[in-house]
Amino acid sequence: MNFCVLIPARLASTRLSRKVLLEVGGLPMIEQVRRRAVESGASRVVVAADHPEIVACIQDHGGEALLTSPDHGCGTERLAEAAQLLGLPADAVIVNLQGDEPGMPPALLQATAKLLLENEALKMATAAVPIRHWAELADPHVVKLIRNDQGHAQYFSRAPIPWHRQYFPMQPEDPLPDGGNWWRHLGLYAYRHQFLQDYARWPASPLENIESLEQMRALERGVQIAVYCAAEAPPAGVDTAADLERVRSLFS
């Protein structure tokens, strides 16, 4: 399909040192991520790294990587630089796949990109999966979203939204009541290249700072964010040593 995948990758990570180069299934994690992107059918896959060691790792495995500034505040800004360096067309569809998600299903990348490929008016898309229990809805580490009747995001929050005043709060494992349409946001995005450059020039927005969610920068400026709704959640990414062992077990 006519989209590309850019994978932002930082060598320094706060909770798990040098995590993108740690072994997963006999390969560096970032190479496993790159291979998931290749399997999506993308026309091009590039790792946008902040350190020459990551670039060398990918090139040693036959992949494409480039060096970007170490000073970017978020992965989206890193991708904006990478897209410029690559000379991608203004209307190119770019999927942002995090460098610590080696278990991301390739079909999910394709489905998210397809939202933009099939609607030229859209500038940005993301993905979500259903939330089924109160413990997940109440977890501030789980980002929630609300969609409108066109399937576009209305709001993202770390708080449990929408709040059902008749039933909430609930016991941790209680199933959520019917009809709430509770959705967990996945950190997977697709953009048009020109929009990506616009986004990188905008300052952080008030709600972006309050919620600590970079997608609010687009939403607060009236950008429609299409949402692909998957049936089941993909394996979680890697933030801690425990996450790493869990992901390694998936590849064993």
Rank of each mutant, 00 (worst) to 15 (best):
G62V: 03
G75M: 04
H61C: 10
L66S: 06
R78L: 11
H61E: 04
E81S: 13
S43Y: 02
H72K: 11
L79N: 03
R44T: 00
V55E: 13
V46H: 10
E64F: 07
V45Q: 14
G73C: 01
A56P: 01
Q59D: 10
V47A: 03
R78M: 15
G41N: 06
P70D: 03
G73F: 01
C74E: 01
V46T: 14
S43D: 07
A48Y: 07
A56H: 13
A65E: 09
E81R: 04
G63A: 06
L67E: 12
A49C: 08
L79M: 05
A49L: 12
V46L: 12
D71R: 14
T76M: 06
H72T: 00
D50T: 14
Q59V: 02
L79H: 05
L79A: 03
D50Y: 07
G62N: 07
H61G: 09
C57I: 00
G63C: 07
H51K: 08
G73L: 06
S43Q: 08
G75L: 02
G63S: 06
A80H: 02
I54R: 11
P52A: 08
E53V: 04
Q59W: 02
G75N: 12
A82K: 10
G75R: 05
L66Y: 06
S43P: 00
P70H: 09
L67C: 11
A80M: 08
E77S: 15
L66K: 08
G73H: 06
R44M: 10
V45D: 03
V45G: 11
V45K: 15
L66W: 05
P52F: 15
A48R: 08
E64P: 03
A42Y: 04
R78E: 00
D50H: 10
A48T: 12
E77P: 01
S43G: 13
C74I: 15
E53N: 00
V46P: 05
A65N: 06
P70N: 11
V47K: 09
P70F: 02
G62W: 13
H61A: 14
C74Y: 08
P70S: 13
I54W: 13
V46N: 13
L66F: 05
C57T: 10
G73D: 01
I54F: 14
V55N: 08
I54H: 12
R78F: 00
P70T: 02
L66Q: 03
V55F: 13
A80L: 04
P52W: 15
V47F: 07
G63W: 14
C57E: 11
P52Q: 13
P52N: 11
E53W: 01
D60F: 01
V45N: 14
A49R: 11
Q59S: 10
R78Q: 15
A65G: 04
I54M: 09
A42N: 05
R44K: 10
H61S: 12
L79I: 11
L79R: 08
G73T: 00
A80G: 01
D60T: 02
D71K: 13
D71T: 07
G41A: 04
C57S: 14
